[in-house]
Amino acid sequence: MEVAEAAGEGVIHYLPVELFDGVVINMQTMYMSWLTMAVVAVIVFAATRKAEIIPSGIQNVVEVFIDWLNGLMEGNMGSEGRRAAAPFVITLFLYLFIGNEIGLLPQVGAHLTSPTNDINVTLGMAITVSLTVYVFGVMRNGLGYFKHFIQPSFLFLPLNLLEELSKPTTMALRLFGNILAGEILLIVLYKLAPWVIPDIWIGFSLIVGFIQAFIFTMLTMTAIAPVFRSHH
């Protein structure tokens, strides 16, 4: 474990900077997060700059993803849930998808890493998902939404709290571990065998990046779904 961590320290740099007393920001992560945001924004704005009834070009591409996610949302949380959560889920998926893949781009001129190789990012996203669920829950059911923590009886409170904490933790760690491991292995492979083999691993990592973004988005939907199903 210590050896692996040491290897990780050697190849992955977060560029931590202490902005104020005790406030440390990983600047590499921030840069890559902003880059990812910019790419997502450019793609989405290009697709929606003039949204047409009859789509073409990039609007088609983005609509394929949106249609796909809309279908999943409709199936998981019904049409009311889809309408409420669509912007959040779509943005989440696009951000994670682009973020996962951006670290696999050729390292020419700039040091590109995935923002999702930082536990702060993945945990931040997972916490955002949890908070979003609470926001939807309170918006839809009022403060009574929190009653589900003591159901079926108040004895379940510790168990429910544990579940509430473990869900975002596992989501964050799964994404973080997959992406960080992919990047570390890629760097190690470049050092061991600079030709062909890293490219195969990049191809594999691209798929992993998509699947991890999908899994995270899917878990987000299943986390939101009970809020919209409880009333029916």
Partner: peptide, 22 residues
Amino acid sequence: MIDINATLIAQILNFLVLLVIL
């Protein structure tokens, strides 16, 4: 390597900004 720091808060804000704009 697993240092949780203010990046977490910053990332949450980043994402919320992106979400609101989009």
